[in-house]
């Protein structure tokens, strides 16, 4: 029952040829087309907000937890954000138990940066007692089934979970957070929704939302975090290069795709 852990080079060649000749992918999608996105709300009632995101067969769950803590010395009136992501061994035969490896660390850090740098969270409004007490927002992401593009699925999940999260009640007298009593207040979010789009280079083609097979074949990747045309984070991954024209083209592909994904999230949350 040993699974093949990488995509064989013959398949890689077929994928490249097909993309070049037909401008299409094995599952019939165009090069710049996303798979179907579904978002299920409240997968854990213990979270302040949680979702299950399915992008084709790729599945992640994301939960928002909040805790009160002392602010950092350099930002006494601002709350904090912490994004973590874990590649669960449950989600693929490729991931093993133990300390996170570099792919998991990159996944978490790129996602964190995309959300943080976009200005999506108004940190000033997460201050409860200036200099003394602020909210820390934890966004925790877990892979449940890896069929490619966990990178973009994670951000989609984070956006959705943060949008539906409700701040828990704070009992000032006893200095306790009452997690079972959510207030009506959501997180202080802005309109800068930090959609992340990863553009992959396969042969001469640039594609978005790769399946696992396509991701294996991908030569290199550029993840672009942007909101309504303004780019706020980038990550060029691995040691293969893009041509200058390719990377310029990738920005435009990502700009178009992020608009589509933004709408897909809106629709899925309705």
């Amino acid at each position: 029952m040993d699974k093949i852990r990488t995509t064989p080079s013959t398949t890689a060649d077929r994928i490249k040829q097909y993309m070049k000749k037909e401008g299409k992918r094995f599952d019939g999608r165009g090069l710049e087309e996303f798979r179907e996105l579904t978002i299920e709300k409240d997968v854990s009632i213990k979270a302040e907000g949680s979702v299950r995101v399915n992008l084709g067969k790729t599945e992640v769950i994301v939960g928002v937890k909040m805790a009160l803590s002392e602010p950092y010395a350099d930002s006494p009136n601002k709350g904090n954000l912490m994004v973590t992501a874990e590649l669960l061994p449950l989600s693929s035969p490729r991931y093993e138990s133990g300390p996170p490896r570099i792919d998991a660390i990159e996944w978490a850090r790129v996602t964190d940066r995309g959300i943080r740098e976009s200005g999506f969270v108004d940190f000033d409004k997460l201050c409860v007692v200036p200099g003394k007490k602020v909210w820390t927002v934890f966004v925790d992401i877990y892979s449940i089934n890896d069929d490619g593009n966990l990178m973009d699925a994670a951000t989609i999940g984070a956006i959705a979970a943060m949008k539906i999260a409700k701040i828990p009640k704070y009992d000032e007298e006893n200095d306790k957070v009452l997690y079972d009593q959510p207030t009506k207040n959501g997180l202080p979010l802005t309109s800068h929704v930090p959609v992340a789009i990863s553009v992959h280079k396969i042969g001469k083609s640039l594609i978005v939302d790769p399946t696992r097979e396509e991701e294996d074949v991908s030569e290199t990747r550029l993840t672009i975090g942007s909101s309504k045309g303004t780019i706020s984070s980038l990550q060029k991954s691995n040691s293969r290069a893009f041509e200058i024209d390719e990377i310029k083209n990738a920005f435009e592909i990502a700009a178009k795709a992020s608009e589509v994904v933004d709408k897909m999230i809106e629709k899925a949350l309705k």
Binding site: S44, G63, V64, K65, A67, S97, F138, D140
Partner: peptide
């Protein structure tokens, strides 16, 4: 391997 997801309980568990 048994593991609790960080947001499976009221007080977040460190992953």
């Amino acid at each position: 391997e048994y593991n609790m997801i960080s947001f499976s309980v009221d007080d977040r568990i460190r992953p």
